[in-house]
Computed example of a mutant assay.
Amino acid sequence: MNLPLVTLGVTLLGCVLAVLGVRSWSAGQAQRQALVDRMSQSGPLALESGRRRRFAGVDRRLRGTRLGRRIERSISATGLELTAGEYAVYVVAALLALYFVVGSVFAPFFGLLAVLIGVWGANGFLNWQRAKRTEAFISQLPELTRVLANATQAGLALRTAIGMAVEELDDPAREELRRVADQLALGRSLDDALGDLVERLPSRELTVLVSTLILSNRAGGTIVTSLRNLTETLEERKETRREVTTLLSQVKVTAVAVPVLGLGFLLVINGMRDGALEDMTGALGGRVAVLIATGLYALGFILINRLTRVRI
């Protein structure tokens, strides 16, 4: 057997296979890039505003978990232009910064407490954004019912009236109604599309409106009179909610001022003698006392918010 010739043949075969492999890999990369470019224009790699997503790898892995899907549902109800991956990365970065800042100013033990409070605060931020968006949507309900009443009085179908409301109203009603219109265009029933709207923005006013629309759509009767009466009622409730919010604003400020005063007392103690907080949290009794005090401040904050929560 001619060994040099066999070696040359194997080498040439390896080179050919290597060239074919490189060409196949290049073609796959080109197809992948083309797919990414198409999806970045209309798919999940771009937000509705056209901004490209950050941390796409983290977002893809996180959305495959139950926690990621729950975070994604919460963000979708807030109207924020964030993905679950971006939210998770920002929260982790903020918690790390919070730990080092609070630990350096007070004591390392307070840094751990700040991280725990920060985790609760991250979830509270989403809830606050959701409540804020719900309030903004509720304030637009009188105008929404007026548009729907005018459209149905003109003889238009309810689906067409919702499409007109998308063009007439501003955000957040425009974006939420666009979601409803898109779901209707994809073949979902009116009951399911409006039910998803109530789940995203839960409120009594919206529940009443959706119930009126669904019942009228099922019965097949006119809804002009019902919508006009509902418009007047929503206008009155809007003014009442505004008055109640103004009356309770001072009490809500008190709920925030109480924990801030506690932090101020800690700074005063640490300023009186450098390292006093580290010595206090270095003992088991001091840590227990700090935990009890933190729990009492949190309890006071929660109770004040509960007492000022007036259902209208």
Rank of each mutant, 00 (worst) to 15 (best):
A257P: 01
E48D: 15
R218A: 07
V10C: 12
I302R: 15
A84Q: 00
S74N: 10
R159A: 13
D191Q: 13
V290D: 01
F125N: 09
L284S: 11
G111N: 03
Q140H: 09
V6P: 04
F301Q: 07
R200P: 02
A161Y: 03
L234S: 00
T134D: 04
R218H: 12
K238N: 12
A161F: 03
G85E: 07
Q140A: 11
L284V: 14
V258D: 01
L184Q: 09
G79M: 04
F55H: 15
D279Q: 14
G163T: 09
N150T: 11
N270F: 06
S49P: 02
R63D: 01
T7I: 13
G286R: 05
Y87E: 04
L261E: 00
L113V: 13
L267E: 02
G50T: 05
F110P: 02
T207Y: 07
I302H: 13
A46W: 05
R188T: 11
G68R: 00
A255P: 03
L267W: 06
V290P: 00
L230V: 08
A34P: 06
A157V: 14
L47C: 06
T78P: 01
V36C: 04
G195I: 06
R53C: 05
G57R: 15
T281A: 05
R309D: 14
C15F: 15
A157Q: 15
A30R: 14
T145Q: 02
S211K: 12
L80P: 04
M1N: 09
F106P: 00
R133V: 11
D274G: 10
T160C: 05
N150C: 07
L126Q: 01
R63H: 01
V19Y: 13
F110T: 07
A276Q: 06
N2P: 06
G21W: 09
A94N: 05
T7S: 13
A157D: 13
P259C: 02
G282Y: 02
T134M: 05
V244Q: 01
R66F: 00
Y87C: 02
V290H: 00
R52D: 08
F110M: 12
D196R: 14
V260G: 03
